[in-house]
Simulated scan of single mutants.
Amino acid sequence: MTLSVPPGQAVDLRVQPVDEVLDRVERSLQVRLLPDTLVRKRRSVGAGTDRDTWVRIERRPLDKIPEQGWNGTESAARLAGIARPEWHGCVVWRDPVGPAMWRADETELLPGVPVGAAVLSAAPELPDEWWPALNTSLDTLAAQHTNRVATPDTVTITQALVTDTIRSVFTDDVDTTVERWVPAHADLNWANMTAPTFSLFDWEDWGNAPQGLDSAYLWASSLAVPTLADRVLHERRADFGSRDGKWMTLFVCAKILGPYARPGDPRLGPARRMAEQVMEELRTG
């Protein structure tokens, strides 16, 4: 159950054959994947099944699997009061050739369609009840308890990571110590939420993170649409008004403006202006 990948070449499930992987998942979960529903991304593949469920398959390198394990979707099943797909089961195996693990999680179908891409270029049409549902789920999540640590972008978030990321772009010598760590989804963007019925999915990386991480990620995902970014700031104003929320705003701004910044990215200007504003607030606050 391996991929035919030349040595040294990165695995990209959008282009590489995955038939053997899909066959193994079908046998292990005793389910048939529906070919016309197949969605292929760089490191994951998803498909509907003949029992009206969804299966998401991911390949993750061993060095990207933290000590806490690799069961975010499974462990999120115990979270109450959050709009998300119910988890049914999984299969996990070690890649027999490469230094990686495979995991397939089966969940109930989404109640709607993904709002859009990870970074939107146009404002989505959302019903009035969508925003209260988002706020309820995020606030309920932050009030719960876990020993997991969030792994945004598959990297475990730590105080050192926060400090190093911010100071790699913003050189002001200010105390970046995070005071409040709360459970977060850690990959909150418009591709991981549904509409018109709100639901939050893809829980692989959830865990404790600085207050405001989710809100900051959603704001960054909205920056190419100024009215949408402003709506996120308004809806999640309690996060953005906190000191930790300001650090998370700088954290995501540093990711946009840092060494991997893309020329022509419409988020560059808004991120730079927001970063200057937040730095001034931190200096004077």
Results as ranks from 00 to 15, higher is better:
Q68I: 11
W70M: 14
R60Y: 06
W70R: 11
T53V: 02
R40Q: 08
G46K: 00
I82C: 04
R40K: 13
A76Q: 05
T73M: 04
E67H: 13
G48R: 01
A83M: 06
E58S: 13
R42S: 12
P35D: 06
S28M: 10
P61I: 04
P85N: 08
A76M: 13
L34G: 03
R51H: 07
P66E: 09
V45Y: 00
G72L: 06
S75E: 14
P85K: 02
A77S: 15
G81I: 07
E86A: 15
S44G: 02
A83N: 06
R78H: 13
W70I: 10
S75P: 02
P85T: 04
R32C: 13
R60L: 15
V45S: 00
S75V: 10
I57L: 14
A47C: 08
Q30D: 14
G46T: 07
E67S: 15
I65M: 12
T49N: 01
V45R: 00
S28F: 08
H88D: 01
D23W: 10
D52L: 13
T37R: 08
L62H: 12
Q30K: 15
A76T: 09
W70L: 14
I82G: 07
Q30V: 12
L33S: 07
V39E: 05
E74Q: 12
R32P: 08
V31W: 01
I82T: 07
V25Q: 11
L38I: 14
V45F: 00
R56V: 06
R60G: 05
R43W: 01
D50M: 07
E58G: 03
V25D: 05
L62E: 15
R32K: 14
R27F: 07
V39I: 11
T37G: 07
Q30F: 08
G48L: 02
I57Q: 01
P66S: 13
A83D: 11
H88Y: 05
P35E: 12
V55F: 00
A76K: 01
Q30T: 12
D63N: 14
V39D: 05
R84L: 05
V55N: 00
R56Q: 07
V55Q: 01
T73Y: 01
W87A: 01
D52Y: 07
A80M: 10
